[in-house]
Design a protein around this nucleic acid. Structure first.
Lengths: 207, 207
DNA sequence: TACCGCTAATTAAACGTTTGTTTTAATCAA
DNA sequence: TTGATTAAAACAAACGTTTAATTAGCGGTA
């Protein structure tokens, strides 16, 4: 019985297809053909196309809460060190899993599956809370400017990286990066990380 | 003959539906019902659902090239004044037309209609070129730091505002803005504009 | 080892809906 | 009367899902 192989094959191919095309643009026949399985297998293993989609997103969206929390609450790090660590972690996390974050990105921009959107937001909100506290702490201990807009700093970091990962074709053209693959190369990651570290320290640090 | 009224009604309702849902999630029957016209009217006036979609995006995406160009090449403004003007213009433009920019946003993140995506990118790229020259000019005349990453500054501005407009439901939760409508209110616009002006001047200006 | 029975896995075919589009005919204004 | 506009109905194709039949694999029994 090849259950594990076929189920995994469906998930692998579904990830590719759903990353590049909207939910409704991918048919179960497309999925079955790509994974080399019978059409009935999708309903058999996942119940429905929609449940496959949800299972895919949820399973691939690994828990980053614990990591963010441990960074944000680490007493050994200064506020600026925490910020740097968050930028590094966040950049790598999204660039290591571009497919699922493209799916999430698209899911957050539509009202097609409101329950799923709500679930995704609640997961992301946990991280936002930790980072928010971390930034406010930096204000309180005198590291950061008291009048800095921390809400926009956070969404700026989230949005910008998520946007690059979510629209790689567009981003390549805008950033003069020749291929989409190079977007996820170490060199470009370093460029992103350096940019945000410099950007935010110039904006946040007291003069 | 009510041609203009009905055709306009279709466009108006289509804009709302396509802003909130993906292309394939909106049926011609949904469109016809929302616009209070017969199903056949969509093919009759636009040729097809896809052509309606393209006509909608293209017609609503007014030319911002001339404005950006006139700002970027204005000899009466300093480099920092040009930057401020671009931030203001860009914020207002996207916030005044959230529906079409949600559509554009979603279109740039998928490969479903490659020709349309290419067209959109080419239009956006023109603006990018002008802003890029403007920023490099600021480097050349000594206003901006020579080692600033201008490519990322640009995509940061584009991506962040486009992201907020493109995923308003998510953005509200992240920014603690109670309703989506408030996201486009003058107060929030001012907040966005202030943030980017401060952010970029801290990052770009020589100390 | 050989066989059985049971369950899970797999397939091909068909299911009823819904899709986008077209046809046909009626209606309207000029 | 002419030609554009509207409506109802019908179109074939594609959709997600299910059914029914078949195959494969495993544990226990002889």
């Amino acid at each position: 019985m090849e259950q594990i192989d076929k189920k995994a094959a469906i998930l692998i191919e579904a990830e590719k297809l759903f990353a590049d095309q909207d939910f409704d643009a991918v048919s179960v026949r497309d999925l079955a053909k790509a994974a080399n399985v019978n059409i009935a297998m999708i309903s058999y293993y996942f119940g429905s196309k929609e449940k496959l989609f949800e299972e895919l997103i949820i399973s691939r969206m690994a828990n980053s809460q614990t990591t963010i929390q441990s960074i944000a609450t680490d007493p050994a790090r200064t506020s600026i060190e925490k910020l740097v660590a968050v930028v590094d972690f966040y950049t790598d996390r999204l660039m290591n899993n571009p497919n699922v974050h493209r799916m999430i990105n698209r899911e957050l921009s539509s009202s097609n599956r409101p329950e799923l959107r709500e679930l995704l937001i609640s997961k992301i909100e946990t991280n936002k809370t930790y980072i928010g506290k971390m930034l406010e702490e930096g204000k309180a201990n005198g590291t950061f400017r008291p009048d800095a807009d921390m809400g926009l700093v956070m969404i700026n970091l989230f949005a910008c990286i998520q946007y690059i990962v979510g629209s790689p074709y567009y981003s390549c053209k805008m950033l003069d990066v020749p291929t989409e693959a190079q977007l996820f190369d170490p060199e470009f990651r370093t460029r992103i990380k350096t940019y945000f570290k410099e950007l935010f320290s110039h904006y946040l640090l007291k003069k």
